[in-house]
Computed example of a mutant assay.
Amino acid sequence: ESANGKLVSAFIVANRPYIPTQYEDITTYSKNLKQHFLSQIDFSNYLLQSSSFLVDRVTGYVFNLVENPSNYTYKVLVDDVSKAISNDHLKIKTTLVEILWQRFVTMENHELANYITDTYLLDLANKSENKVLAETITSYKKTSVGTKAPNFEIASTQNTTSLHNLEGSDYYLLIFWSSGCGHCLNELPKVKELVADKTNLKVVAFGLEDEPTKWTEEIKKYPEFIHTVGLGKWDNPTVKTYGIAATPMYFLLSSSKIIMAKPYAYEDLEMVVKKL
């Protein structure tokens, strides 16, 4: 009551704890606590939107409310969050659901990230005309671990083929890199050394280039790699399909071009390759 008319009032109301009016066993209390956790929040309140409160509350609900959650449990919690936020508040709902999606991406939980995309986020991105978000989550889904890597043409002076038509190896390491990327030029020699004794693995190096002059010279250092160039660099269709936002980026593929791993850094790649 003393907070009425003050800025803090919105936070006090939104953070009102669940207090039983009579004795409840732990199961009943937990159920009521869960139902109460989001029910006091006015997601349209500008003050709450301008703070970290909504993010903390939503992520706390999904990731901290249940001990040892399964993917099924996570889906139920995500569903609860979506139901709690009205579609009338499109911008804040899109933002909060995207944060949940990003958290599962960071956890490398592809199933949950793609569940959020298919069930909520792609529709929200389209309704809010957020083309960048729609492209990002679609690219992630197409290149998730367990999916078949999108096909692309591989052109060389000898012949033209495609990723899916490559044969003769148990594994393929797909690298997106650029001759203008200092980090790439530092890591590619390490990759060459790392795979030197891996006769069951072939490297496919996709160069992101504005023009091919420097790339043509640089690939002479790696005659064992299968090279192809993507002109247009970040605007190249294959680069967009794979959602490449930085180089180098690695994808380990099976013989049938199923994505087995997406090592983020060279150290991660090293661990993956050494197990083959």
Rank of each mutant, 00 (worst) to 15 (best):
G168P: 09
C184E: 06
K233Y: 10
T143K: 04
N71F: 14
D235Y: 05
E67R: 10
V13M: 15
Y266H: 01
I219A: 02
L90W: 14
R16M: 09
F37G: 05
A14L: 06
T147M: 09
D80I: 04
C181N: 14
D80C: 15
E67W: 12
A205E: 08
A155C: 02
T143Q: 13
N71Y: 12
D235R: 10
T213H: 05
L201A: 10
F152G: 02
Y29K: 08
I99V: 14
N15P: 04
D25V: 00
Y61L: 12
P212W: 11
V204A: 15
K233T: 13
W215Q: 10
L252I: 15
I175F: 09
T138P: 01
D118T: 01
T119G: 06
T95Q: 07
A149N: 03
L174I: 06
N71K: 13
K131V: 13
T238A: 04
A246Y: 05
T28V: 11
F63Q: 15
K192Q: 14
V191F: 12
K262E: 04
S255K: 13
L38H: 09
T161D: 10
W177Q: 08
P69S: 06
V145S: 07
E129T: 08
L174K: 03
V8C: 05
A84P: 12
T95S: 11
T247N: 06
S169C: 02
A265T: 13
E267T: 12
V273A: 06
S162N: 08
T21A: 07
A134I: 04
K83Y: 07
S139P: 02
Y140H: 03
I92T: 11
E167P: 02
S39W: 00
Y140V: 08
Y172A: 11
K31D: 15
D118H: 01
N200P: 03
S52P: 02
S128I: 05
K93P: 00
T160G: 03
L90H: 07
L269Q: 08
A205K: 09
V62S: 06
E218V: 08
I175R: 07
Y29P: 14
N109A: 03
V272F: 11
N64K: 10
S139E: 00
Y222P: 07
S254C: 09
Y264V: 01
E24G: 06
V105N: 05
R103F: 02
N71L: 12
F11S: 11
S2Q: 03
K148Q: 14
L174P: 09
C181V: 05
F53S: 15
V195S: 07
V55F: 08
G232S: 11
